[in-house]
């Protein structure tokens, strides 16, 4: 290990501690406020650990605000998007990587080209289409546009491309059909790529806001982010209940992240440096 002065160590760690405190304090404040009775919220200096903690804000959130419904909606929507997106993207990725057919490269280029177009370009036409098909306020309307991801197709194609052709050829000689090859050879070998995509697709759809905001006008179809934004408008003065709402949206992903942290960070470096 190289030598370093004690002074350097202190400076470096102080900077890092201050930065990470800036990152963590909003979360701590959120959790602690969500556990407080109104009289303790405006006490200064803030009491980071409530003296008299209560879960009342949460019970009110789920009882009178019906937060269970958006919670369920978000799980259904994010879960379905993740499942179908992985299935469809890895199928297409396999075909683009290993099948040979006329026009393949041109088709793949077209998929890549759509990566550059911002979501707002497609927002209005897709909204009109959904309205025309009567799919506003439906799960299909919330889920279907999220499944089509050119990034996921691209990512799966790049990964499957590195799987040796010999494996596939050998299976073909043994008489395996394409379906068998895909489910029994390609998918198991693509596990690292699938994990990465699963994590990012699930987190992305859990956090997605603009599309659900537009498509779900009926309270029963709200997803969590939409429900929280409405809550902030309705309970303007009730900080504690707003914090409880935010907590419900943030915590599941946070816990998920703490467990799958290694994959998250590996995924970032993997997908990030592709560009």
């Amino acid at each position: 290990m190289r030598k370093t002065s004690v002074f350097n160590q202190i400076v470096v760690h102080t900077i890092l501690l201050i930065s990470s405190a800036c990152m963590i304090v909003p979360f701590v404040w959120m959790v602690s406020t969500s556990l407080k009775y109104p009289d303790e919220i405006f006490v200064f200096p803030p009491r980071w650990i409530p003296r008299n903690p209560t879960l009342e804000n949460y019970t009110e959130l789920f009882k009178s605000m019906n937060f269970g419904r958006p919670f369920l909606n978000t799980i259904i929507v994010a879960g379905c998007i993740t499942f179908f997106s992985i299935l469809i993207s890895s199928m297409a990725g396999y075909a683009f990587a290993k099948f040979r057919f006329k026009g393949r490269n041109r088709l793949f280029f077209m998929v890549l080209a759509t990566l550059m177009v911002p979501g707002q370009m497609t927002l209005i036409p897709v909204f009109l289409l959904m309205r025309y098909l009567g799919l506003l306020n439906t799960y299909t309307g919330l889920i279907a546009p999220g499944i089509a991801s050119s990034f996921n197709i691209f990512f799966m194609r790049q990964f499957i491309y590195t799987i040796p052709n010999d494996l596939i050829e050998a299976a073909r000689i043994d008489g395996a059909k394409e379906g068998y090859i895909f489910f029994k050879i390609i998918l198991p070998l693509s596990k690292p790529a699938i994990t990465t995509i699963a994590i990012f697709t699930f987190t992305g759809s859990w956090n997605s806001f603009l599309w659900p905001l537009i498509i779900a006008q009926d309270e029963r179809m709200y997803t969590l982010p939409v429900a929280v934004s409405v809550l902030a408008g309705q309970y303007v003065e009730n900080i504690a209940i707003q914090m409880a709402g935010s907590c419900v949206v943030i915590t599941p992903i946070l816990v998920f992240f703490l467990f799958a942290q290694r994959h998250f960070i590996k995924g970032i470096s993997l997908t990030g440096l592709k560009g």
């Binding site: 956090n207 969590l224 809550l231």
Partner: peptide, 30 residues
């Protein structure tokens, strides 16, 4: 090399990124 607690710092820095913008904006507003 000499920096300690690397995993902790990385985790802390990463939290805001995976956090829902709408929900954390409510917190920031306060």
């Amino acid at each position: 090399e000499q920096t300690k607690l690397k995993t902790f710092f990385k985790t802390a820095f990463f939290l805001p990124f995976i956090t829902n913008t709408v929900a954390i904006a409510v917190v920031w507003a306060w």
